[in-house]
Simulated scan of single mutants.
Amino acid sequence: MSTPRFLTLPPGVAPQKIETPQGSFAALEALPVSGVVERWPALLVPGLTGSKEDFIAILQTLAQSGRRVLAVDLRGQYETPGPDDPSAYTCAALGADIDLLAQATGGGEPIHLVGHSFGGLVTREAVVDGRTKFASFTLMGSGPAAIVGRRAHHSRTLMKEVPEQGLEEVWHSRFEPEALNAGVPDDILAFLRKRLLANSPTALACMAEQVVTMHDRTEELRQVEVPTLVLYGEHDDGWPPETQSEMAAALGAESVVVPGAAHSPAVEAPETTAAALVRFWNAAESRLLDSRSGGM
Rank of each mutant, 00 (worst) to 15 (best):
R217G: 00
L28A: 04
E178P: 00
M214R: 15
I111P: 10
S87N: 09
D97T: 07
A135L: 14
G120F: 06
R156K: 06
C91N: 15
L180H: 05
P185R: 05
L44D: 09
P83V: 06
R67Y: 09
A190T: 15
I58R: 05
N199A: 13
G82D: 12
A146L: 07
L167Y: 05
R67L: 03
N199M: 03
G115W: 11
K160T: 15
G47T: 09
T90K: 03
A63W: 04
R131I: 03
A14M: 11
F191M: 09
A96Y: 05
Q210E: 14
M214G: 06
V184F: 01
P144R: 01
T20H: 10
A104L: 01
E169Q: 15
A14L: 12
S291A: 15
A198C: 06
V122I: 12
E254K: 14
T272W: 02
Q77M: 13
P270T: 00
V230Y: 09
Q77V: 11
P177R: 12
A179K: 06
D73G: 08
L204G: 04
L62F: 04
H172P: 01
A102N: 08
E169D: 13
V258Q: 07
R5W: 07
D236W: 02
A27D: 11
D187V: 04
R222H: 07
A57W: 12
E225P: 00
F118I: 06
A57Y: 08
S264Y: 13
V257F: 01
Q22P: 02
P10C: 06
C206E: 13
T8N: 11
A93D: 00
Q60H: 08
R279F: 02
T138R: 08
E246N: 12
Q16Y: 03
G295C: 07
D129A: 13
